[in-house]
C-alpha cells in the first residue's frame, strides 16, 4: 500500500514494478477507512471489522468489486470463523 502525489505517479510505479494498476483510494475515502478501523482501537471492545462489515464499509464509500471483497480471506478470529 503506497501513497502517491498523483495518478501519474501511480502509473509510473506500476510500470516500473510490472504491477497491475488497482482502483485508487482518495484521502477522503482513506480517512473514512481509518476511522472505521481505528477510532475505537484503544478501547476495551476494539476489534477489526468482520468481512461482511468490511464489504459494507467499502461499499459505502464506493469501493466495490472483487478487489475489495475479503470474504475469501480466512483468519483466526474465532468470532469470524
Amino acid at each position: 500500500m503506497l501513497l502517491f502525489r498523483s495518478e501519474e505517479m501511480v502509473d509510473g510505479w506500476c510500470a516500473a514494478n510490472n504491477v497491475p494498476k488497482r482502483p485508487l483510494v482518495s484521502l477522503e475515502q482513506l480517512w473514512v477507512l481509518a476511522k472505521e478501523w481505528y477510532s475505537d482501537r484503544l478501547t476495551i471492545h476494539s476489534r477489526r471489522p468482520k468481512p461482511d462489515e468490511m464489504v459494507e464499509i467499502f461499499g459505502r464509500i464506493g469501493l466495490t468489486g472483487s478487489f475489495w471483497d475479503p470474504t475469501a480471506d480466512t483468519w483466526g478470529n474465532p468470532e469470524c470463523s
Partner: peptide, 15 residues
Amino acid sequence: PVPAPYVVHIAVPAA
C-alpha cells in the same frame, strides 16, 4: 484530512 489530490494504491486484493 486537509484536502489534497494524493491517492493511495493498494497492489494486493483485500482477500
